[in-house]
Amino acid sequence: MFQHMRASALWVLARHGDAYRARGWVQGEWSGRKLIKEQVSAMQQKEFTVTCRGRGLVDITNRIRDWVAETQVKTGLCHVFIHHTSASLILSENADPDVCADLERFMARLVPDGDPLFEHVAEGEDDMPAHIRSVLTRSDLTIPVTGGQLALGTWQGIWLWEHRYQAHQRRITVTVQGS
């Protein structure tokens, strides 16, 4: 089947109208049908840990920004995932530290530690509130990559929000896909 094809590379062909699309940089013909030149979509992944000293927010923007630049992806998506149920990720302002303090005060009012409503207290009075805080926020974020950089707004930063009082090592996976 492929002996009739003259191409510099071939990865995957998929029917696309009268032409065939090939993933990768492809030029050539296949039984008289043209191949459309298309750049391959690359996917790269990295895992790292963040040391949290206890409840509060840790700005992880620069760590992710630097790695996205290393991938050399110019246009695509950056997906950030935290592997824990008592910490979360948020996209928030990174210019004024009062924002972090206000967010923490708001969450303390919304989900107070030691509430007698909670039965799950195996690891302390902050255990179930930490799980609820995590559910109310996010365990993942997706940010566009434009021009080889995270396409964040002027004051936006990526934050790991630790919801437990004790220090923890938190595992983060960052996946970048694009071309």
Rank of each mutant, 00 (worst) to 15 (best):
M1K: 12
F2E: 14
F2G: 10
Q3W: 00
H4W: 10
H4R: 12
A7I: 10
S8N: 08
A9W: 08
A9P: 07
L10S: 13
A14N: 14
H16T: 09
H16I: 00
D18N: 13
A19D: 02
Y20F: 13
A22W: 03
A22T: 06
G24K: 04
W25G: 10
V26P: 00
G28L: 05
E29D: 13
W30L: 15
G32N: 05
G32L: 01
G32E: 03
K34W: 07
K34L: 09
K34I: 11
L35V: 12
I36V: 10
E38S: 13
V40G: 09
V40Q: 15
S41F: 09
S41M: 10
K46N: 06
E47K: 14
F48N: 06
T51V: 14
T51Q: 08
C52K: 07
C52H: 05
R53C: 07
R53D: 11
R53F: 00
G54T: 07
R55P: 05
G56D: 02
L57W: 10
V58P: 00
V58L: 13
V58K: 08
D59F: 08
D59T: 14
I60K: 08
I60T: 03
T61Q: 04
T61W: 04
N62H: 13
R63K: 12
I64N: 03
I64C: 11
I64Q: 03
D66A: 14
D66K: 13
Q72M: 15
H79E: 10
H79K: 14
V80M: 02
V80E: 01
I82M: 01
I82V: 12
H84W: 05
A87Y: 02
S88L: 02
I90M: 15
S92C: 09
E93D: 14
E93S: 06
E93T: 15
A95E: 13
D96R: 09
P97Q: 07
D98Q: 11
D98C: 08
V99H: 01
C100E: 15
D102Y: 09
D102E: 14
D102P: 04
E104S: 13
F106V: 12
A108S: 15
A108N: 13
L110A: 07
P112L: 00
G114S: 00
L117W: 13
E119Y: 13
E119L: 11
E119Q: 12
H120T: 06
H120S: 01
A122K: 09
E125V: 11
E125A: 12
D126H: 06
D127H: 11
M128I: 13
A130D: 01
A130S: 12
I132V: 15
S134A: 11
T137S: 12
T137Y: 04
R138T: 06
R138P: 01
D140C: 09
D140F: 09
T142L: 08
I143F: 01
G147D: 08
G147H: 06
Q149C: 13
L150I: 08
A151C: 09
A151S: 15
T154W: 01
Q156L: 05
Q156W: 02
G157I: 01
G157F: 02
G157T: 04
I158D: 02
I158F: 03
W159I: 02
Q166P: 04
A167I: 14
A167T: 13
H168M: 10
Q169E: 15
Q169L: 10
Q169H: 04
Q169D: 11
Q169F: 12
R170L: 00
R170Y: 04
R170K: 09
I172E: 05
T173D: 14
T173K: 14
V174Y: 06
